[in-house]
């Protein structure tokens, strides 16, 4: 019938669009940079641990930015740290994604007015894909954020850059 039926004798073949295949591969193995900043990092670690099990979504921590796909900014971004975060982000290979976790990295949080040392939102230095609100967000909220990121990746295209 079809071309592939004649080409291959066994039926062990799945046909997919290149976009879908690549997106599926990317969103199913989001390796995160193991990097935490403040109290949000404790929640992030709880999300990685057995009870919430980040690994079932293919998220596992990588200790080097060169092998990471996603960086979760989990905590207060001080001005001193901001320059380091920017460098870490630049060291990550494309495609790369950013989850901003918690009020501090979203907008400065409780430090918005008198925090002389705090960057009021990590999106001032790097482009954020998903913002997770909370102070700190519960692990469920971070998982929701990850699912939102997966949704975003699922709709990406090789030809048309959306991210």
């Amino acid at each position: 019938m079809g071309l592939l039926d004649k080409e291959f004798t066994d039926g062990n073949i799945v046909i997919a669009k290149a976009d879908d295949l690549l997106n599926w591969a990317r969103l199913s193995s989001l390796w995160q940079l193991s990097f935490g900043l403040a109290c949000c990092a404790i929640e992030m670690m709880a999300t990685s641990a057995s009870h919430y099990d980040f690994d079932r979504f293919g998220v596992m921590p990588r200790p080097t930015p060169r092998q990471a796909d996603v960086i979760i900014i989990s905590g207060t971004v001080t001005l001193k740290m901001a320059t380091r975060i920017k460098r870490l982000y630049e060291q990550m290979p494309d495609p790369k994604y950013i989850i901003s976790m918690g009020s501090c990295s979203n907008c400065g949080g409780p430090y918005w007015e008198h925090g002389y040392h705090v960057l009021k939102g990590v999106d001032r230095i790097i482009p954020v894909d998903v913002y997770v609100p909370g102070c700190p967000p519960r692990p469920e909220a971070l998982l929701e954020g990850l699912l939102k990121l997966q949704e975003k990746i699922r709709n990406e295209s090789l030809v048309k850059k959306t991210a």
Partner: peptide
Amino acid sequence: LMPYDWEAGYPLRKDYKNPEFYQGMKVTY
């Protein structure tokens, strides 16, 4: 605690004014 190249002064002094920018990053809200 502050960056080594911080030139805006000493933050806990009562007459301290936070700078507008630090290394090209906007500091004020």
